[in-house]
């Protein structure tokens, strides 16, 4: 349970917490200004995190879900 709570918090720190540094970067990545690349990257990562969370969450193992 602790692991998946941590996995739920990391995206907030990554996408928003690091923004002050992200906004300083002038580099284009994948044809986009860095801030757009950053939010796209985190959108994909969050999907991955949710996949991990779903599979690590013991509540999703139970057959009866009522």
């Amino acid at each position: 349970m602790k692991r998946i709570i941590l996995l739920s918090i990391i995206p907030f720190i990554g996408s928003l917490g690091l923004l002050p540094f992200v906004d300083e970067v002038d580099q284009y990545v994948l044809g986009m200004p860095f801030i757009f690349f950053w939010v796209v990257l985190w959108t994909l990562l969050i999907s991955g995190f949710l996949w991990l969370i779903y599979h690590l969450d013991p509540r999703n193992m139970e057959d009866a879900d009522k």
């Binding site: 996408s15 928003l16 906004d23 969050i46 949710l50």
Partner: peptide
């Protein structure tokens, strides 16, 4: 311009909270 980027990232973050 750049401020519009907020629209991309708020939904994924909202979904994490929704999971719980």
């Amino acid at each position: 311009g750049a401020p519009a980027a907020y629209m991309i990232v708020y939904l994924p973050l909202s979904v994490i909270m929704m999971y719980w």
